[in-house]
């Protein structure tokens, strides 16, 4: 089967000389969800920014058969939908509807088509009622849904979500996991939230110092890198 995303020997160095990615190989196949785990600063976010050409390093990134390069950026960015960690940065238009229509309009769709797409996407994330609201009137969970709608409206084949559950309360996290689980696209999930990874991902990759240090089923990777929160419950019978 042809992979949707294929990354070979990707290397990236920041202007100040810090090596962020040091030879990453990665594949994503249709229909699967991959969790990207690892410590802060291990290169996870830098890695996903390469997937739609927001930064370009050495090595090759191929999306749906297209190499990611300046000439293909418009197509690549339609195929790969990136949902950022901070929804406030993603929602910049004055109303929810206009924000969700931002992507389709950039793709060159006519106004009425873009509006139809935006309304459909809002309905898909359960936010149709908020279309004329201003984004800053929404709760963190609602903002995240609208941000996802803004990506869905572009009809992407791959969803990349950077820390989708941060800033959400536990019920909000559960609702988001349920929503993501229903979406048919292949997904890459950058997260510290191991529960979320277990619920959604079929496998996981673990980043360490700019490399993928290990991959496999989520539970196995979590156990191998000791990446679960330790149980903080008091030992039975102890007293203060």
């Amino acid at each position: 089967m042809q992979p949707l995303v294929e990354v070979r020997d990707l290397r990236y160095q920041y202007d100040d000389g810090t090596v962020a990615l040091d030879g990453v190989d990665f594949q994503l196949f249709p229909g699967e969800t991959v969790a990207v785990l690892g410590a802060n600063g291990s290169g996870k976010t830098t890695f996903v920014l390469h997937l739609n050409g927001l930064i370009m390093g050495k090595g090759s990134v191929t999306v749906c058969g297209m190499p990611v390069e300046p000439a293909t950026l418009t197509h690549v960015r339609q195929k790969v939908g990136l949902v950022f960690q901070d929804s406030d940065n993603q929602l910049f238009m004055p109303t929810v509807l206009e924000d969700v229509a931002f992507g389709p309009l950039n793709l060159g769709l006519a106004r009425d088509q873009a509006e139809t797409r935006a309304r459909d996407a809002l309905a898909a994330v359960g936010m149709a009622h908020a279309s004329s609201k201003a984004p800053y009137h929404l709760s963190a969970g609602e903002k995240k849904r609208v941000a996802i709608a803004g990506i869905l409206a572009m009809n992407p084949e791959i969803l990349v979500l950077d820390e989708p559950t941060t800033f959400l309360d536990p019920p909000g996290q559960n609702a988001l996991v349920a929503l993501l689980d229903e979406l048919p696209q292949a997904k890459i999930l950058v997260t510290h939230d191991v529960d979320c990874a277990r619920a959604l991902a079929s496998r996981a990759v673990f980043f360490q110092k700019g490399k993928i240090a290990g991959e496999g089923p989520v539970q196995e990777v979590v156990a191998r890198f000791n990446w679960d929160r330790i149980s903080l419950q008091r030992p039975a019978g102890s007293r203060l």
Binding site: L49, N52, R77, F84, D86, N89, E98, L105, L107, M154
Partner: peptide
């Protein structure tokens, strides 16, 4: 940092230098 994040998010959704709006 916000401004840079916003700019990245705009590019990620295909922004090409012109704001297009729904209302006319």
């Amino acid at each position: 940092a916000h401004a840079e994040g916003i700019h990245q998010a705009m590019l990620a959704r295909g922004f090409q230098g012109h704001f297009l709006t729904l209302s006319g």
